[in-house]
Design a protein around this nucleic acid. Sequence first.
DNA 1: TGTATGATTAAT
DNA 2: TTAATCATACAA
Length: 189
Amino acid sequence: MFPKNFFYRHSKLVAPDLIGCYLIKNNEKDQIKGIIVETEAYSQEEEACHGHRKITESNKSLFGVPGTFYIYKSYGIHHCLNIVTHKENFASGVLIRAVMIPNRNERLASGPGLVTKTFGIDISFNSYEVLNNKFLWISQRESILEAKDLIQTSRIGISKAKNIKWRWYLKNSRSVSKRVKGDRSPKFK
DNA sequence: TGTATGATTAAT
DNA sequence: TTAATCATACAA
């Protein structure tokens, strides 16, 4: 289980800790399970965060209780899944960018819009609890990951605060959306 | 009321 | 590199 205050920390601390954890969804007849291999942290104090400017109807769940979901629609097409972190009434969260198949280094969903598409996650999960959730939840990873297992780099697809390195991914995973130059992990075919 | 713009993806 | 696509934010 997660420590009591796991999500009550800065998003830049929670994001790397979510790598290796399981994202699980129960459907009527089956269950889908993946290992999180890529995350990004966002926080009110920097410009790329949706809540940097002010609270609105669409971003208000990002200001919610840590340990709940923040889901938004991107480019009018894709849903993106976040876990709210840090503290209430403060915009902060971790974007789940890629997930791989458990026990096999194979692609399940590489890209935030594909994660929600693969799992069938839409806005209806917005602001629901991450733990103690019967339909969609996250469970703790089984093994300890060390810093050498992760690559830390800058976030993708943003126009502001590009210098901040708040993106993490599992080294050697075939299910990452984009690798840094020089990372020679085998590409998924 | 009008316009610009994404925490993207897939195809070129 | 670019089109697709649309709700939202913000200006006027």
